[in-house]
Amino acid sequence: MKLIVFVFSFCLLAQAASSQQIKVTGEVTKPLTLSAADLAAMPRSTAIAKDKQGVAHTFSGVALADIFAQAGVTTGRQLRGENLAKYVLITCADNYQIVFSLAELDSSFTDRVVILADQMEGKPLPQGVGPFRIVVPGEKKPARNCFQVTSIAIKFAKE
């Protein structure tokens, strides 16, 4: 009986999460539309960030760097010359937007691993925050730890 209930609620969860997808577009060789299942199947990373009350939580998800590898973004040895003028525009469901420079997210420049999280303390993200959010470990202000991410666009600064 317990098992049936478990399977049933898992299906419901999976269904709710699966309706949301994240688009990865722009300066990529392979545009992606990632579902919850796609992210679950990718290499997983963790990151720690504090909430409004200053309490630290462990988040898990996929490093932006791993998403870039799959989409064919200029990372690592390719991240030089004009590619250093690329930035990442993250858009959330409420139309909130933030940017990173590509170099800020690259393991050849920094050890900090920014992730697209789908779990907090091993559970799906809470209502109003999930299914997917950004977690930037060690950032003083939480303003780039944005909620309900809907798209990741890699762009060239054009000026």
């Binding site: 309706s19 949301q20 469901a93 409420d94 139309n95 909130y96 109003g128 309900q148």
Partner: peptide
């Protein structure tokens, strides 16, 4: 103004679904 979409707590059950009618997402 910041150009974002929010539910500012007008109703328990909104009569007008607002942004949801554009995106089809329940969280809107």
């Amino acid at each position: 103004v910041t150009e974002t979409y929010h539910n500012n707590g007008l109703d328990h059950v909104p009569a007008d679904s607002g942004r949801e009618s554009v995106t089809g997402m329940a969280y809107d």
